[in-house]
């Protein structure tokens, strides 16, 4: 364990992240990059982009609360130090996505109103399930919920949005690439650290699997509501571009239903693989969404 955790030191994080892929960025993008003119000039697209970005802020606020709460629950100092870096990563994500809301025209004094008006209620429930475990000081369940389920979902959503925005909104795609690099590290820690703890505490499995099932239910409900109410901004902001291909689906031409399906399939596939690696079995939500 010690060798693997040495890869998650503060020093390594400083070299990889602030002194690595974030060097010369401002709010996660190039100093001279700005939102696409086509997006800013189209009211429908702008509205969809604001709604989509609000969900990112909500998810990252949950991740900030969870990772900071898990520092004190961590059973060893290397894990505390890693979670300290994750706390700051998540705070950065909150900041850059909040900044994007300002870039899209949201007024500072209206920020909290916009967030509470547009937050997907299922995403809020998803966050509550996780934060309940964190509040209880349950490190194993908290890390599975945060670093496998939440981060796994974020990872796929960000990848899809990055692919969809790469050509027509390079500024936002650039912002997303930095967060994807962070999420990859977080998921890696979750998988590596939790496997051994699950082996030591097999009695925790049923409770954690129940949490995963509940979080998955709310995640799928989040996707269903998001795509039924307002198609993802990626579909509206891209032309017919081969660069917008993601997991066999062209995001520029896909219908909202096709996008929801590819996203859900991708995230669930990732869950099954990652949960299997740490010795847990994926649980399908009981109620169909």
């Amino acid at each position: 364990m010690a060798d693997f955790l040495s890869q998650y030191s503060i020093q390594r994080w400083l070299e990889m992240c602030p002194q690595g892929y974030l060097e010369d960025t401002v709010y996660g993008r190039g100093a001279d990059e700005s939102e696409a003119e086509d997006l800013l000039g189209n009211e429908t697209m702008l509205d969809a982009a604001i709604t989509a970005t609000v969900q990112l802020v909500v998810g990252e606020r949950c991740a900030l609360a969870a990772s900071s709460g898990l520092v004190n629950a961590a059973p060893d100092y290397p894990s505390k130090r890693f979670l300290a870096t994750q706390t700051l990563d998540e705070a950065r994500h909150v900041e850059i996505f909040t900044q994007r809301l300002y870039d899209l025209g949201v007024k500072k004094d209206k920020l909290e109103d916009e967030i509470s008006d547009r937050a997907n209620p299922h995403l809020v429930k998803f966050a509550e399930v996780l934060l309940e475990k964190v509040e209880a000081g349950d490190f194993i369940a908290g890390v599975v919920g945060q670093n496998i389920v939440l981060e796994g979902m974020a990872f796929s959503v960000f990848e899809m949005m990055e692919a969809g925005n790469r050509q027509l909104n390079p500024k936002f795609a650039h912002t997303l690439r930095g967060t994807i690099a962070d999420e990859r590290r977080h998921v890696g820690f979750g998988e590596n650290r939790i496997g051994s703890l699950i082996q030591e505490h097999p009695e925790k499995k049923p409770e954690i699997e129940r949490m995963q099932e509940e979080m998955t239910y709310h995640m799928l409900a989040t996707f269903a509501l998001a795509f039924s109410e307002s198609p993802d901004e990626a579909i509206q902001s891209n032309g017919d571009s081969p660069e917008a291909e993601w997991h066999g689906t062209n995001l520029a031409t896909a219908t909202p239903e096709e996008m929801e399906a590819v996203l859900a399939e991708t995230v669930l596939g990732e869950f099954k693989t990652r949960l299997g690696r740490i010795g847990l079995e994926y649980q399908s939500p009981k109620s169909p969404v």
Binding site: S9, I10, W13, L14, K80, R81, T85, T87, A91, V94
Partner: peptide, 17 residues
């Protein structure tokens, strides 16, 4: 204040390290 405290979390972890 949350974001500031998050920067402080990583500073303190660095000091410990």
């Amino acid at each position: 204040a949350k974001v500031f405290m998050a920067t402080q979390v990583v500073d303190e972890a660095r000091h410990l390290e």
